[in-house]
């Protein structure tokens, strides 16, 4: 997994609540057996005016110029500012794959759906929960200032704004450690292989039918 520590990135505001993973990456792209290449189809139904299918040349498709990601001032954005319950719905990890492949490294929202939140950390993406009032302040600032950037410091757990304001954020210690070091969960878990085996033996003795 790609490490994440510090980012000074352009922010794009996606001003709607309950953005679901079907919207982030529509189902037709889930037919892929790979975990890369989803970026051009992130938010496909909002981003393009035609119906997207796998295998199309996305550079030739008509863009929906009203969609915020298509506006010239937000090109190259690495920080997605969103509203409550971002990433709800399907557990598809294709959603964080698509966001990461598009170029996002950080998502800031008042709240996230649990499975999506968890999936982000497995893919070098940092989801940050900030109070709704603070997110509101950021929305106003982004919309008022072209080229608006934020400095995200995972080590210090702060977001620095151009006006000097600092927004501290919480992050789970284990997830922070994995993200800072780009660690793969499986390798870490396999350090506890003896404990897993011991548990399994005890569990099998208590409920043998689970192992039939």
């Amino acid at each position: 997994m790609r490490k994440f520590s510090l980012l000074d990135g352009l922010v794009v505001p996606l001003d709607r609540a309950n953005v679901d993973t079907d919207a982030i990456i529509p189902k037709q792209f889930l037919k892929s057996i790979k975990r890369s290449g989803f970026g051009p189809n992130a938010f496909d139904e909002w981003r393009y005016l035609d119906h997207g299918e796998p295998g199309m040349d996305n550079s030739k498709r008509p863009l929906n110029q009203d969609f915020v990601l298509n506006q010239p001032r937000y090109q190259g954005a690495q920080i997605l500012l969103a509203r409550e319950n971002f990433g709800c719905g399907s557990s598809r990890e294709h959603a964080p794959w698509a966001l990461e492949d598009y170029g996002f490294r950080v998502i800031i929202a008042p709240s996230f759906a649990d499975i999506f939140f968890n999936n982000c950390f497995k893919n070098g993406l940092l989801p940050i929960k900030l109070a709704a009032e603070k997110v509101d302040v950021l929305f106003k600032a982004v919309e008022a200032n072209a080229g608006y950037k934020l400095k995200v410091d995972l080590e210090q757990q702060t977001i620095g704004a151009p006006d000097g304001a600092a927004y501290p954020f919480e992050v789970d210690a284990f997830r922070k450690h994995c993200l800072l070091n780009g660690l793969d969960d499986i390798g870490l878990t396999l350090q506890h292989v003896d404990e897993i085996k011991a548990f399994e033996a005890k569990h099998r003795a208590a409920q043998p039918w689970l192992f039939a």
């Binding site: 975990r35 557990s91 598809r92 499975i115 999936n119 497995k122 499986i186 878990t189 292989v193 897993i196």
Partner: peptide, 18 residues
């Protein structure tokens, strides 16, 4: 409960979930 694909691989490899 539902899990992402990285966790699917994790459970396959370790029989456990973090």
């Amino acid at each position: 409960h539902g899990i992402g694909t990285s966790e699917v691989e994790h459970v396959m490899a370790t029989q456990c979930l973090v």
